[in-house]
Design a protein around this nucleic acid. Structure first.
Length: 500
RNA sequence: GGGCCCAUAGUCUAGUGGUUAGGACUCCGCUCUUUCAAGGCGGCAGCGCGGGUUCGAGCCCCGCUGGGCCUACCA
């Protein structure tokens, strides 16, 4: 019988939710969901100076957006509440006491400045900058002297001096570390807050975490963790260290590589199901040739045995591609909900949409969705749906608007289309083709200038379907306006044209 | 500097001793279409290097190289 699997995502709320964190959260969540286990959210706000409420909100928002729900956590509670470490200080005190009593921990009076200074000296000498364990055996006189100076001690954990500690990693096998290389670590800061190394060990135990799945940057931290676990008499969890996410230059992904905040992707018009799909493919593979998959499908196929050890580069281009694929199949209401604020922010759409307007927006999106990779491109690609104030692209002017016969064609188009009884894709097509015929030109000779005039561009969805979504009089006036500009020679010059 | 991790095309990956090394992104070409930024078709491009083990290595072992992470009273 399998033990109930319990995993956690334990971010520190010191900034926005990074895609790397989202990746770790996702893998933990998938692991839990695949095996019917429990996914815990724990906030590790033991950095008193950098932790913020705002950041905690960003974590909630990001996880919820991705659809990663947690079974136990700060807001939902659970059998091991509280799930915020700053509210668990008394629990840590209990454990410090045990370590102090057993002699595995001791007070250290060295100040951060002194420590830094000594590290510098050691580095300068080419020595490993580790703590020299000097406070391990302080005499009563020395302690008294430090106390008299007004020093407040930190608590250090006495690491083993000899032998080695072996990490049993589910992904990497056994990883041995030489104990003599690591100095004693601080487990309680002078402020009374625990350091990460301590709180993580205590809480993983108290919360009965069975599997610790985290980034590879934590692999060497596992050595003190394991020793702490042993000293406290806890049962060690199983470990799995995931490959890190990197930028194109193969260094740890950071803001200099572009957008790294999950929220930024949301704002750019990425779909949560696409982000999940893309992130899942970083270090995991479906095992089939199908890469565009839903969260449900990922859950069904996910397991650690398909997870790779190697770090992976966050390829923005592929992320966009996957997003594009999901845009094709997303429910139109989801796309409307994403597009609306983006378009409103760009000043192209009102903040409050009437039902009719919303329906119209849905049609616009439907027309564009097959070629979009992010929803945000609507502000440029579909600009002409929302305003008369669009630019005539160089290519549109070059190819069509500078031709001597174009103004005449546009005038004819304006007159005939304005006179149309009905305004549908069918009727506009009939109208445009009729104009072409009466002018004795091919359909394309009318269609292309029409598109160039009405949209300012040479590319886009079916002309007649887009005309259908524009008011008839708007189309007519744009055709006339463009014809005027052609005649005045304004479109003959390169560069953007200021629109009325 | 030290310790550890990693290594299939530019990128994400499949592959667990015998494969024409498979797929995806990107890029390029062709094609369809009223246009492409979509679709279809095709193409370029890969097992980092050197030793072993083996009848036979992308797969196993060793070394090298390269990259990464850690080396805080940050997590």
């Amino acid at each position: 019988m399998a033990e109930p699997l319990r995993v956690r995502f334990a971010p520190s709320p010191t900034g926005s939710l990074h895609v790397g964190h989202a990746h770790t959260a996702l893998f933990n969540w998938l692991f839990a969901r695949h095996h019917g286990g429990t996914f815990i959210l724990r906030i590790e706000d033991t950095d008193e100076v950098r932790s913020t409420e705002e950041s905690i909100r960003a974590i909630y928002d990001g996880l919820r957006w991705l659809g990663l729900d947690w079974d136990e956590g700060p807001d939902v509670g659970g059998p091991h509440a509280p799930y915020i470490q700053s509210q668990r200080l008394d629990l840590y005190e209990e454990q410090y006491r045990r370590l102090l009593e057993s002699g595995r921990a001791y007070d250290c009076y060295c100040s951060p400045e002194e420590l830094e200074e000594r590290r510098e000296i050691m580095r300068a000498r080419g020595l490993p900058p580790r703590y020299d364990n000097r406070c391990r055996s302080l005499t009563d006189e020395q302690r008294a002297a430090f106390e008299a100076e007004g020093r407040k001690p930190a608590i250090r954990f006495r690491m083993k001096d000899h032998g080695n500690t072996v990490i049993h990693d589910l992904l990497r096998g056994d990883v041995p570390y030489d104990n003599s290389l690591i100095g004693d670590i601080i487990i309680r800061k002078t402020s009374g807050f625990p350091t990460y190394h301590f709180s993580v060990v205590v809480d993983d135990h108290l919360m009965e975490v069975t599997h610790v799945v985290r980034g590879e940057d934590h692999i060497s931290n596992t050595v003190p963790h394991l020793q702490l676990i042993e000293a406290l008499g806890f049962e060690p969890p199983k470990h799995a260290h995931l490959g890190l996410l990197m930028g194109l230059d193969r260094t740890k992904l950071s803001s200099r590589h572009g957008a790294t905040d999950l929220a930024a992707y949301r704002e750019m018009g990425f779909l949560p199901q696409a982000m999940v799909n893309f992130l899942a493919l970083l270090g995991w593979s479906t095992g089939t040739e199908d890469e565009i998959v839903s969260l449900r499908e990922i859950v069904a196929g996910f397991d650690l045995d398909r997870v790779s050890r190697a770090p992976s580069v966050f390829d923005f281009g592929k992320c966009e591609f996957i997003n594009g694929q999901h845009i094709r199949t997303a429910p139109i209401d989801q796309l409307i909900d994403i597009a609306h604020p983006i378009l409103a922010k760009a000043g192209l759409l009102e903040t409050d949409l009437s039902p009719a307007r919303r329906e119209w927006l849905g049609k616009v999106i439907d027309l564009m969705r097959d070629r979009m990779r992010t929803v945000a491109v609507l502000t440029s690609w579909a600009r002409y749906f929302f305003t008369d104030d669009y630019e005539y692209e160089e290519r549109a002017r070059d190819k069509w608007l500078r031709r001597p016969e174009t103004p005449g064609t546009l005038d004819a188009l304006a007159n005939d289309l304005a006179a149309l009884e009905s305004w549908t894709a069918e009727s506009t097509e009939a109208g445009v083709r009729a104009v072409a015929e009466s002018l004795g030109i091919g359909g394309g000779k009318a269609i292309h200038p029409c598109r160039a005039a009405v949209t300012g561009t040479t590319v886009g969805p079916s002309l007649f379907h887009l005309l259908e979504l524009l008011p008839q009089e708007t189309v007519a006036s744009r055709l006339r306006r463009t014809a005027e500009l052609c005649r005045s020679g304004a479109l003959a010059e390169p560069g953007p044209v200021a629109e009325p």
